[in-house]
């Protein structure tokens, strides 16, 4: 099984050691197209829709979904990224550092924001993202798309679009790239 270096807030991260492969690159690709269609269907097109990827894992997925939506509809879809570190609720409990610079392309007033992340786990990152979005205006609605929903929610948050539901143990690590999804653990 594959190993890969995972970049996370220091001193976290390290080498991810995969145990099981749960989605292939083709599976990811099919999920991206299906979710893109679902987002367009649900919103009756892409009017006022803004795609926002969560740094850092959600950004490549958001780029692909945004591109797919453009290809399907032939319309422009504004694309942004957001780093939620400064809005997290665990600042002071564990080291938290912004990794990338947030970039929101337009005022979010009355827009439909589709947040995109790789893995939905406790829901705390999404809570932070919802908080961060309010500093850019008041969206008409916020929807959530994730490639993997692994359960163990600690907050009342649910996804609107899911690539795959994967039951996990709390101590497992789910690693999502465009090449596939693997279950495993971090080697310190």
């Amino acid at each position: 099984m594959a190993e890969r270096e995972r970049k996370m807030t220091r001193p976290f991260g390290g080498v991810f050691v995969a145990r099981t492969s749960v989605m292939s690159a083709d599976d990811i690709d099919r999920a991206i197209w299906r979710m893109s269609h679902e987002i367009i269907e649900h919103n009756h097109g892409v009017d006022n829709v803004v795609v926002v990827g969560l740094q850092t894992g959600g950004v490549p997925l958001a780029e692909r979904i945004g591109e797919a939506m453009v290809e399907i509809t032939g319309r422009d879809v504004p694309f942004g990224t957001i780093d939620v570190a400064l809005h997290r609720d665990d600042i002071g409990i564990r080291p938290v550092m912004p990794e990338e610079v947030t970039s929101i392309p337009c005022d979010l007033l009355n827009k439909v924001v589709v947040l995109i992340d790789d893995v939905l786990f406790t829901g705390r990152t999404i809570r932070a993202a919802l908080d961060a979005l309010t500093t850019f205006g008041r969206p008409r609605s916020v929807q959530l798309a994730v490639m993997v929903d692994r359960g163990h929610r600690e907050l009342p948050i649910r996804p609107d679009y899911v690539g795959k539901n994967i039951p996990t143990r709390r101590d497992e690590v789910v690693d999502v790239t465009l090449d596939g999804v693997q279950l495993g653990e971090m080697r310190k």
């Binding site: 220091r10 001193p11 002071g92 409990i93 564990r94 080291p95 550092m97």
Partner: peptide
């Protein structure tokens, strides 16, 4: 933020320390 946002448990003596959060040293 660097000086005050990263003191780990020092600044929150009563804060819970989830056992799945890894070591609680600073960064670098």
């Amino acid at each position: 933020f660097l000086l005050l946002g990263n003191n780990g448990s020092d600044s929150h003596p009563n804060a819970p320390r989830p056992n799945d959060q890894g070591p609680n040293e600073g960064i670098l």
